[in-house]
Amino acid sequence: MDFQGIYDRLRAAKAPGLLDCDLPRAGDPADKKDQGRAGDAFVLVDPAHWADFFRTCKQDERLGFEQLIDLSATDPAKDDENFWVNVQLLSLKHKHRLAVKALLPKDPGRIATLARVYRAAQWHERECAEMFGITFEGHPDPRNILLPDDWAGSPLRKDYEFPKEYHGISCE
């Protein structure tokens, strides 16, 4: 299925929390400032129904997203009040992908875990949690994965300040 087909199917299946979709579009040649939007289409999902949405995606026959390929977050800007939580789903049976995005308020930055829907999400969420300071509620193993256990701050946030030293080792 192409993106439109998947989106229609999600609508038809009444996927919980489905908000909207965003399609790439060409820029307006007349307006210099409008460059359009390049890249992939994605669906926007309400973070409140986060896990249920993916359950639908996984269990619906026509969608059949067996694999969660990637889960990460994006901090679009320092003064933006939302994170984006991005997920890439893949269906091997139907040979299609779906990009899912949720706008998650930075404060308090809590979202349900997907580790019980896709085991693949477990490590991605651990990484995402330590890099952005997002809390994945109900995560079975919420430890740091790449950073040391005592690392302060969330490095991939745009307002992250590089530490001057770490355990007496100068970082400058």
Binding site: P24, G27, Q35, G36, R37, A38, G39, D40, F42, I69, D70, S72, T74, P76, N86, Q88, L90, R97, A99
Partner: peptide, 23 residues
Amino acid sequence: VPPGEAYVGIENPRGELGHYLVS
């Protein structure tokens, strides 16, 4: 790079190497 976001996965020797870029 024009604004937008893209995910591209390719078949690496070890599996799918994905780049998710936001511009």
